[in-house]
Design a protein around this nucleic acid. Structure first.
Length: 557
RNA sequence: GCGCCCAUAGCUCAAAUGGAGAGAGCGUUGGACUACGAAUCCAAAGGUUGCAGGUUCGACUCCUGCUGGGCGCACCA
């Protein structure tokens, strides 16, 4: 609410300058406002003069001065300055900051959330792990990321649908069925050579055992058995996956099955659509798609010579179907090992005349688990923490989610299990949660010690009381609270939830410092009330921020 | 061989669509609890941002070429 206000004022100044003929009338720009690293450079600043300098071919500091002279910010800024060769810096008035704090306290955070999305409809697809095995830690990172992103976008004006795409068709299902089939044979005493390429995980044995215990009778025909077993196993595994996700705090609005795309004729329809467009040819008994026409990629097979369709084919159908559902933006969160697949899909969209710019693919890099300072094997071996379930059991949902969101997505993540488990100051999750719990504690104490706290609920308090906040630290805190909105805006715009993580650590830190130097509960009850408004608002920001990350804000720890 | 991603303090990482003297946490050293929770705070030390060029008023950020690491290059999904 501060940044937008400054933007408005700058625009007003530029309109004025246009009227006077000092700026070209057709000039259009977004004033880019940032918060300088150095306190001396003001609370906010803009590099607009540098940008205009190129267009107007005049020195930036001249332009800065010109804008400065036409700014009407008397009421909100103590002063403005031109510095660093052309930066325009804004120094906010304490009284304005207190006005803002007061509104925020009265009306709550939600009234001031930046509207980045403007109601845009977004389909956010993430995790989409194949129902052939349990979720592992890598999926956990995708889940934490996707879910946090969905919450972030919802808060900033997007209309978000979370979707999980279930690959329950194709060869892998057959392989899963066969894996169970062989384990069943094993259980009934037969000797089997279990092939390398099948699913060797323990969970397959468990499913087989379950079927054995229930004395399930299979048809004579092996291929029939495999079909039945595949369907049973994948549904069973999908159930487990959903359970794991729910325990991780991740809920989907929609589960889309690959098999339904075949069932509804979407795959066939898409195939003939491509055929009509003429981007398809036959070679060696297979049907090929001219990927190379659109992207720097090789041509790919859509229908194999045995008549089976490839994964690529149903995936094209899936994305076409997504476009037809009428979203403004599609976001796919994929493991980085799928990066080679991106041009292929984009090529398909181009071929179908769909706007590939509407599809954003976010690649999530791998996770390495560290235990005792050494990497833990990521294969499904015994005793290694590879599944998401094991991770959550080990370190808890909050720590896991927070840790996953401490890196930008395109960087590898080292997950230190021992650190995540520590309930000490070394662990950033607790650092932030502790700040929240501490404020709760202050407010509890206030009640216990007979301070008046009703105003926190009924908001019956006068603006004047905030004038008692005179410490520099207090004004710093207020500014920091308002950076919450700037952070959300930047995070949403760039699809980077990790920015919020760092902001929260920062905000918590500023509070802890304040806490150690300044008592909230004072003899002076008016001052106490003013400080309670400050810390209560700060607490709301912490809670809201943690909530977006999917982490609890505990009242006690 | 071709392509994508990464490289920042001893370690793990930030740096806000190219902005002002590159910041945190951990670890190290030294300090702060008879007042709201010490899961906290304060201070110090720690850097040629992998290397070499280029673009720019300005580069960790963009471009080119190297080096090192991860991943991908199926009629698998």
């Amino acid at each position: 609410m501060i940044k937008p206000e400054l933007e408005k004022r700058i625009k007003k100044a530029s309109e004025l300058l246009k009227k006077k003929g000092l700026l070209p009338g057709e000039l259009n720009f977004e004033p880019h406002i940032e918060t300088p690293r150095e306190k001396d450079f003001g609370d906010y600043s803009t590099n607009l003069p540098f940008i205009l300098s190129k267009i107007l071919k005049r020195p930036p500091n001249q332009i800065a001065q010109m804008i400065k002279d036409h700014l009407d910010v008397e009421d909100i800024c103590e002063r403005t300055s031109v510095a660093g060769g052309g930066f325009l810096n804004f120094y906010l008035r304490d009284s304005f900051l207190k006005d803002c704090l007061f509104s925020l306290f009265l009306e709550g955070l939600h009234r001031f959330m930046p509207d980045v999305g403007k109601g845009k409809k977004v389909l956010l697809e993430f995790v989409s792990s194949n129902p052939t095995g349990p979720l592992h830690v890598g999926h956990g990172r995708c889940a934490a990321f996707g879910d946090a992103l969905s919450r972030l976008l919802k808060k900033t004006g997007f209309d978000v649908t979370k979707e999980y795409y279930i690959n329950d068709a194709g060869k892998q299902m057959e392989m899963l069925g066969e894996s169970v089939y062989l384990r069943l044979k094993e259980l009934s005493g037969e000797r089997v050579d279990f092939p390398e390429n099948l699913y060797k995980g323990e969970y397959v044995k468990e499913i087989a055992k379950e079927l054995m215990d229930r004395k399930v009778v299979l048809p004579e025909e092996k291929s029939e058995s495999i079909k039945i077993l595949a369907r049973y196993a994948s549904e069973r595994i999908m159930g487990e996956i959903k359970e794991d996700l729910e325990r991780f705090g991740v809920f989907f609005d929609s589960f889309k099955k690959e098999s339904d795309l075949f069932g509804s004729g979407m795959v066939e329809e898409t195939l003939s659509f491509l055929q009509e467009s003429g981007y398809i040819y036959k070679k060696d008994g297979a049907v090929w798609f001219r990927t190379s026409l659109f992207e720097n990629d090789e041509d790919r097979v859509l229908v194999k010579s045995d008549g089976e369709k490839t994964y690529f084919t149903s995936d094209i159908a899936y994305h076409r179907e997504k476009f037809l559902r009428g979203y403004d933006l599609l976001i796919n969160v994929w493991g980085s090992d799928h990066h080679g697949y991106v041009p292929r899909l984009k090529a398909a969209l181009s071929a179908m005349n769909l706007d590939k710019e509407k599809l954003k693919i976010i690649l999530i890099q791998f996770v390495t688990l560290l235990k005792d300072g050494r990497p833990v094997g990521m294969s499904t071996r015994e005793g290694t923490y590879t599944t998401l379930r094991e991770l959550v059991d080990e370190v808890g949902k909050d720590a896991a989610r927070f840790f996953f969101l401490t890196r930008k997505s395109d960087a590898h993540l080292e997950f230190d299990l021992d650190l995540a488990k520590k309930k000490t100051n070394e662990n950033p999750v607790y650092y932030v949660q502790y700040a929240h719990a501490r404020i709760e504690s202050i407010l509890r104490c206030a009640k216990d010690q007979g301070f008046e706290t009703g105003f926190l609920e009924d908001k019956k308090i006068e603006r004047e009381i905030l004038d008692l906040l005179v410490l520099d630290e207090e004004m710093e805190l207020v500014k920091m609270i308002f950076r919450f909105f700037d952070t959300l805006e930047g995070a949403a715009r760039n699809l980077e939830p990790h920015r919020l993580t760092y902001y929260l650590i920062d905000l918590a830190g500023k509070f802890h410092t304040y806490y150690n130097t300044t008592r909230v509960l004072q003899e002076d009850h008016k001052l106490t009330r003013a400080r309670m408004v400050l810390v209560k608002t700060l607490k709301d920001a912490l809670k809201e921020g943690l909530g977006i990350l999917g982490v609890c804000a505990p009242e006690k720890m």
